[in-house]
Every structure is written in structure tokens, then in C-alpha cells.
Design a binder for these strands. Structure first.
Lengths: 275, 275
DNA sequence: TCCCGGTTTATTCTCAGACAATATCCGGGG
DNA sequence: CCCCGGATATTGTCTGAGAATAAACCGGGA
């Protein structure tokens, strides 16, 4: 077994991957791989992982690297390790679902439909309020960032990566303009929903609805410091995005806002996600 | 320097502390200590920490333990470490503010007034919506957990720890009853706000207002599946809690709900937090 | 002067092996 | 039957060495 030292260090099948433009280290790669296995349910909650020695030998990495991966996963609430007991996968209720890495691990595969709709519910709750706050507190600089993101969106297509990124940047800028750091830290979850909206929209031919008017209305309201208009235009934007994604209207929060008198857009047929 | 091995392992000044009823390990202790230094601003964002060797020698721990602490902090977005560059404290915008540990580190000292009000803003946004969803989706079991928490609250005082815990359990149960795991994962932030409400209320003699009626109204609405009443009673509960805590009404989201006709409780003098 | 490419170097990253601490489990004693 | 203490499996901590990484530096050429 000690001929192991002759091998190159990287024995993982999975590529290193990148995070924030920076290559993941070995421990980060291990954490991601195991994290994906956990959030995808392939390692069930409550299950005890292999011991450190066995696991590190199986992965052909040192115990150090494996242990650091364990620390990362524990920091995100996915696992819990105790002497004599072992390392156990935590119950989903303890997972830090809004951690950016956990979110990306969840949505690295085909996302669970329920989780995606949960994310949209979050958007429905958070983004209109954030828009209302942004209308009151936004600075000129923040407004300009939003403007620039919209210009990029208009210039490029949402089909290309640059356009999607601009879409996320718009929502990021708006959340930051809310002036509330806790709301702003929800961006990774909201960005995931935004991205997957586009992906699903692409799969589904029928409606290449132009999302720009919705965004422009939000921008105009925030620019003119119209709190009510900001809240309502953002609520409408999220509603339409959800419609584009799943062909459904939100079931739980529909009564949250007064129904618009003539606001009924033509409904499209329901879309059932493949999985 | 190698006589270090004769010393006992635990050389940290800070006690181990507990987390989730379980004693913190050495790496967890180090992570917490450095984490508190970072979120309190005593180590400024952008600053590069000492190298691993120097830092571990200063703390009188092994490089292993220090490195695992670094992994934990990096997993929570507080720091970022790269070869040749060092370990740098991230900008606050990258911190995972809703991570339970980060929250507890932030509020382990005297919390910044702006952050606390940010948390109340989050509650104002999230909890009424969660209550509305809970009114639609709650199970009988979840309702019973809420009932039991309220009974404990009524039986004990909020002054003692058991009462505070029951208060948090009520809000936890409600968030879980919303049926949305992402909303539920906001509980640590909301619980921190709930706890600090009680602490500030205690400091400030004048109003030992009984919080039970507010809670009972929310419970009744959720129990009878009255969506609108659930939303509005929870909005009122949060509003009163904020009033008790800071003596202020929410500034940003006041226009969000219709003002109650006779809902104006007598204002108390403003309370300025010490720090 | 400025730019390009190779070299140096500081720092983290990974490895290996040993011993310590911890908490469950089980057996023995009361 | 209950309580208690030791055996034991697992993670936790320590040490020391070498590899990988990427910024910074330097030299040569345009």
C-alpha cells in the first residue's frame, strides 16, 4: 500500500473544477464531490460515512485532505462527526440550504422540482420587499450598476452566458441596494433560480417572452424612488419568471397581493419537468 | 521551539465552549475565536492573516488544527486562502451572514444596532409570508409543536432561558410549517433577533409587555388556516417586537402594510444601544 | 523606455505516521 | 435491576517533510 507515494497526488476521477475563477484544491474537490452525493440523496441522511482511514484510502488521498473536506462539509451543516461515533450525514433540516456552495451542489444536477419552486417562493417573498427598500435607499452608483446590467442583457441574449450573468448582476445589484446585508446574502439562492429559469425557458420552445420590459419597469420604479411600484413590478417579474419556468402560478402566495384587474397574461399549457 | 511537545495540547486562552450541546474541538474553538475577531471588525477585511506556521505557533496549536479552522472559516465565506498570497479576510459582502455560526459569532458580543435592525427587517419580510404559507400547509403535528411551545412560554417567563427557547421553538415550528426548506433555514437569523429582543427588553425596564397575545393570535390564525389573518397577525407580532427592542417602528417597510386604524401603541422613549 | 519570458521565492497544499482524547458499549459488582 | 468502570473504535491533534502554486523579480530584447 505504501507504493502509493509514487502516484501523482490527484487520484480523484472528478476534475478539480473552479470556484470564483479559482481552481479548487484537493480538499475542496473532495468536499464538493461528497457534498453533491449528500444533497442529491445518494448518501442518505443519518448514514455514517466510512472511517477516515478507509475513506482516504478509497479516494487515494491523504487523511489530511479528507479531514479538511469533512470540516468544510460540517461547516455547511451537511455532516457531523464525533469521536467513536463516526461522521454522520445530518438531517436535511440542518443543512445550510442558502450557503452558496450548497446551492450550487444542489443545482449542479437536474434540480428537484420542489426545491426549485421553493426557491421561487423565496424570490416571491424577498425580492418585492428588497425592491421596495432599494427604491428608498439605492445610491446613484448602485442604480448605475443596475442600468449597466440591463444594457448588457438587452445587447446580448439570455441564451449566452454573458446575458445570464448580466441578469444575475441586476438582481444582485438590487438586493445590495436594499441596504440590508442579510437580504443581500440571499443572492446565491436567487441567482440559482434566475439561472434555472433561463435554462428551463430554453428547453421549452414555445415562449421566448422578452423579459426586458419587466426588468425595465423594476428599474424605472427604483430609479424614481417609487416604493409601491418597485414592489409590485418586482412581484410581477417574479410571477412571470415562475410562469416561464414551470408554467404555474405560485400556489401558496397568490393571495399575498391583490390580483391585478387586467393583469392576466395568457396562460400557457402546463409544463412538467423531466424529473 | 521543539520543547512545545511537552505542553498540554490546549493552549488557547479561550474556553472550548459548546455548540449544539457538544463541546467544541480545538479547531472549532480556533475557528470561533478568529471568526469573532473578523465579524466584530477587529481584523479588517482585506487584511492578510499571519502565515500558518507563525499563526499556529502563536496560538500554540499544531498547523493541522489551525488549517482546519481556516477551512471552516473559508467555508463560511469569511476568509480566502491561496498559495503564495496567504489567507485574506474577505469583504463583508462575501460573508455568509445567515450561517448559524456566523450569526452567533456576530451576536456573541454586543450586536451592532444596524445589524440587529437588519435582522428585524428580514423578519418583517419573511415571517408574515411564512405564517401565510404555514396557515395553508401546516400539519397537525406541526401545530401541536407550536401549541406546546406557547404553553411553555406561558408557563415560564421569557426571563429564564427556557422561556426564550420556547419562543424560538415557536418560530422554528412556524417556519418549518411553511413547507419551504429555504425559508426554514432562515431560522438561525430569526432566532437571534428573537433572543436579542428579549435581552434588550430586559435591560429596558419600562415595558414588560406581555408577548403572549400576539403569539396566540398567530397561532389561532395558523390553526384555523386563515391565511390573511396569519400574515397580518405575524406582521403585527414582528412590529411590536421591534418596538420593544429599539423603540422604533420599521422605517423601510412601513408602507408595506396598511396602517392599523387604532393600532398605535404608546411610544416609549428611544433607547440608544451602547455601541 | 517598455515589454516579454524565465527564475526566484513565499505561502499554502498535500502527504505520512504517530499518539491523544473521546464517547459508546459491555461486563462486573452492588 | 441499576450503577459504574474499563475496553475499544473512531475522530482529534501533533510533527516534519516535500510538492504545487502564483506573485514578484530580473534580465534581455525591441
Amino acid at each position: 500500500m505504501s507504493d502509493q507515494r509514487s502516484k501523482p497526488a490527484r487520484a480523484l476521477k472528478t476534475p478539480r473544477g473552479i470556484k470564483g475563477g479559482r481552481a479548487l484544491r484537493l480538499h475542496g474537490t473532495i468536499a464538493r464531490d461528497i457534498g453533491v452525493l449528500i444533497v442529491s440523496g445518494r448518501i442518505a441522511p443519518g448514514r455514517v460515512l466510512d472511517g477516515e482511514i478507509e475513506a482516504s484510502e478509497r479516494l487515494e488521498v491523504s487523511r489530511t485532505a479528507y479531514r479538511e473536506a469533512v470540516r468544510i462539509l460540517a461547516a455547511k451543516g451537511l455532516i457531523e462527526s464525533r469521536p467513536k461515533i463516526g461522521t454522520r450525514v445530518s438531517e436535511p433540516r440542518h443543512w445550510h440550504l442558502l450557503d452558496p456552495d450548497v446551492i450550487s451542489w444542489i443545482f449542479s444536477g437536474t434540480p428537484d422540482e420542489r426545491l426549485l419552486s421553493g426557491l421561487f417562493e423565496l424570490r416571491t417573498v424577498v425580492e418585492p420587499a428588497a425592491a421596495a427598500l432599494a427604491a428608498q435607499r439605492r445610491t446613484a452608483e448602485q442604480l448605475q450598476v443596475m442600468r449597466q446590467a440591463l444594457d448588457t442583457m438587452a445587447a446580448t441574449s439570455l441564451a449566452v452566458d454573458e446575458g445570464q450573468q448580466a441578469d444575475c448582476e441586476f438582481h444582485t445589484a438590487l438586493l445590495e441596494a436594499s441596504g440590508n446585508p442579510f437580504l443581500a446574502s440571499l443572492i446565491s439562492g436567487i441567482a440559482a433560480a434566475v439561472t434555472w429559469t433561463t435554462i428551463f425557458k430554453q428547453r421549452k420552445r414555445p415562449l421566448p417572452r422578452d423579459p426586458m420590459p419587466d426588468h425595465e419597469r423594476v428599474y424605472d420604479a427604483v430609479a424614481s424612488r417609487d416604493v409601491t411600484a418597485a414592489r409590485e413590478s418586482m412581484a410581477e417579474l417574479v410571477r412571470l419568471a415562475l410562469l416561464d419556468t414551470t408554467g404555474k402560478t405560485p400556489v401558496g402566495l397568490r393571495a399575498a397581493r391583490r390580483a391585478k384587474p387586467g393583469g392576466g397574461r395568457p396562460r400557457t399549457a402546463h409544463y412538467r419537468m423531466n424529473r
